[in-house]
Simulated assay, not measured.
Amino acid sequence: METSTRLGSALKKLYTAFHNNTLNPECCKQCAVGNILSHTDNWKHLSDSHGALELNYIGKVHQTLGRKFNGYSPIELLKIEHIFLKACGYQLPLHYKNKKPKNPTDKTILFNGLYAVISFLCELDEIANVMDYTKLFEVENDKPKYELT
């Protein structure tokens, strides 16, 4: 399956972070967007709250200028992070008084977050969801319709 450069890069970084235990929803450098942006936290200045969907003044300026961060616009980055945190079980925006998972780095919680993010990234690039495994179970004449490659 052909993917865009930005999607391929994001998938590799998220996969690596998941398996190297460097994915942490509560850290701006190790969350979904922090990993996509090579462990930087510059993106946190695009909004006033971690997990919010509203761009602040700085975010709006970058968005208006057409600025991209590793291929993603400021509003796309906020949506990616919002989806990740929501799928991990956080009440948004991130705040110490809001609901959050007991163990935010639990692999099941992180997988749920990544599944949602990767589905969204595929949607942004208008390609089939690479996380969709249902085709593996389709049969035709009592035999698998598709082979594993």
Rank of each mutant, 00 (worst) to 15 (best):
M1Q: 07
M1S: 12
S4A: 05
T5E: 12
T5N: 08
G8H: 12
G8Q: 14
L11S: 02
K13V: 10
Y15V: 10
N20D: 15
N24W: 14
K29A: 14
K29S: 11
A32S: 13
I36D: 05
S38H: 15
T40Q: 15
D41H: 07
N42K: 10
N42R: 15
N42A: 13
W43K: 04
W43D: 06
H45T: 14
H45N: 11
S47I: 10
S47M: 11
D48Y: 08
L55Q: 08
N56K: 07
Y57V: 08
G59Q: 10
H62P: 01
T64Y: 09
T64C: 00
R67G: 02
F69Y: 14
F69R: 07
F69D: 07
N70A: 11
N70T: 12
G71C: 06
G71L: 07
Y72D: 01
I75K: 12
E76H: 05
E76G: 00
L77M: 05
L78P: 03
L78A: 08
H82F: 06
L85T: 00
L85M: 03
L85D: 00
K86V: 02
A87P: 05
G89K: 01
Q91P: 02
Q91S: 09
L92P: 00
L94E: 03
H95V: 10
N98I: 06
K99T: 09
K100D: 06
K102F: 04
N103V: 05
N103L: 01
P104I: 05
P104D: 03
T105A: 00
K107C: 00
K107E: 02
T108L: 10
I109H: 02
N112F: 01
L114K: 02
Y115F: 06
I118L: 04
S119R: 11
C122A: 06
D125I: 07
D125C: 05
D125F: 03
D125V: 10
I127E: 07
A128W: 07
A128R: 15
N129I: 09
N129T: 08
D132K: 03
Y133D: 05
T134D: 04
K135Q: 08
K135D: 13
V139G: 00
E140Q: 03
D142Q: 13
K143A: 12
Y146R: 12
